[in-house]
Design a protein around this nucleic acid. Structure first.
Lengths: 234, 234
DNA sequence: AGCTGGTCTTGATTTAGATCAAGTCCGGCA
DNA sequence: TGCCGGACTTGATCTAAATCAAGACCAGCT
């Protein structure tokens, strides 16, 4: 897909003029990364932010004793690391790595900041986008601390069920977008606990077979996980 | 303290012209809240954000089963709820309540957004401030999930030790800014566990007497809590 | 084919922290 | 003065999840 189209489809830029989009695109670079490749490391100079065209990128930190915490996993259509570009320290505060083969657009810091200085509508959009991200983090914080492992897993499944159309009346299929290991770390659950917690969801009609999961009773699952049924994408 | 001075001292506005500061101040309102008073509730229209002059405000959510999660507690000099003002939903995503008697400045949304549209330098400052807030949330997320209760408490103490000058060579005194109950909720620890965890810090020279805490071996405590000694404010 | 390394599961045991329960301490106030 | 309620502590017990350990399953490779 072309850079211009990707840019135009991103919520950040959806209402900009054609001309602006093209001039922006001319300053951007398209990049590909194989699974497990690093995009940037914590402490690197934040010279760009990104929009994903294909694949998945995890943002994570490594603690002193080598433990990995996944802050977020971004997928197609999403942009990330905007905040780093604006921070005073001008550094990425996290690491970024591909968890599946990835294609993305790199938007350079300097040109972009110039654009914002010229056009404050841009700035307001940016502020809105970052505010939304912050909102997500707050929810994440609430989830991790107040919900059990099975609840978090259930909520995750329901959040991704739009990726695959339901096969039967009322029942859903989810194709997991990346490894269970990554999912478990993202939800702050050890791999063993993840495996067990998943089986605890059978009463709600959850059946896993490799990377595809069927949910025969989504409503009951939503209830159990304390997610609003109307927040479910499908 | 006057509104203008408060505004000028906030990181958000520290580099604006005198004239601008005064015109902004003219549109702001000064407010006082007694301890335990609500400032706004989740879902309220986000018509303003705030700078604290005195006291402490907690941002929190209530889960379906009545449990309170504290997202953040803000103190003197800090601003909060900027992000809500920019979000598309134009609503506060959390509740806000005074945990001590509070004085603050209320900055109205509309006038402020107008200012941003007029002056993009404003916008960049804003972006930087919100980015920093986001950084804080990421750290918070990492802390809550990867550290034990005693470690989180120790880190909290070290973070607030600047509030009180040390009494003895190498040893520190911290005057807790608000109730232990609030602190424990902020750190996602039950009150009983908090009490016990605090006593587990005695090997590092932590001695509590009501709201004042002395730390006779800050270095060892920092080591135990895995915080960089250079991040400690005193 | 058979080996290898990664992903995932299953089982036994441990542990940090929650929960339940009972008190102490303290400040406000009638 | 004595009572009340909220803040805090201490103890006994319970439980979700981590940890330790072993094996199953699968894909890629030589």
């Amino acid at each position: 897909m072309g850079i211009v189209r990707t840019i135009r489809q991103s919520p950040l830029f959806q209402s900009i003029e054609n001309e602006t989009a093209e001039s922006l695109a001319a300053h951007c670079r398209q990049r590909k990364l194989d699974k497990a490749r690093e995009l940037f490391a914590m402490g690197d100079e934040a010279n760009a932010f990104f929009i994903i065209q294909k694949g998945w990128i995890k943002l994570y930190r490594i603690s002193k004793d080598g433990e990995e915490t996944i802050i977020h996993v971004f997928g197609p259509g999403e942009s990330f690391a905007e905040a780093a570009v604006f921070s005073d320290r001008k550094m990425y505060p996290v690491n970024a790595q591909a968890v599946e083969d990835v294609e993305l657009v790199e938007i350079p810091r300097n040109y972009f900041i110039k654009k914002i200085e010229e056009d404050s509508r841009f700035a307001l959009r940016m502020l809105g986008a970052i505010a939304a991200r912050q909102h997500y983090l707050v929810q994440q914080l609430e989830q991790v601390t107040n919900r059990t492992a099975p609840q978090r897993i259930g909520a995750f499944l329901l959040r991704f069920c739009q990726k695959e159309p339901g096969t039967k009346e009322g029942s859903l299929t989810v194709h997991l977008p990346y490894d269970k290991l990554i999912i478990s770390r993202r939800l702050n659950i050890k791999a063993e606990t993840f495996s067990r917690a998943l089986t605890k969801l059978t009463p709600y009609g959850v059946e896993a077979d490799g990377r595809s999961v069927t949910i025969s009773n989504p409503k009951a699952l939503a209830e159990f996980c304390e997610v609003d049924f109307k927040d479910i994408p499908c």
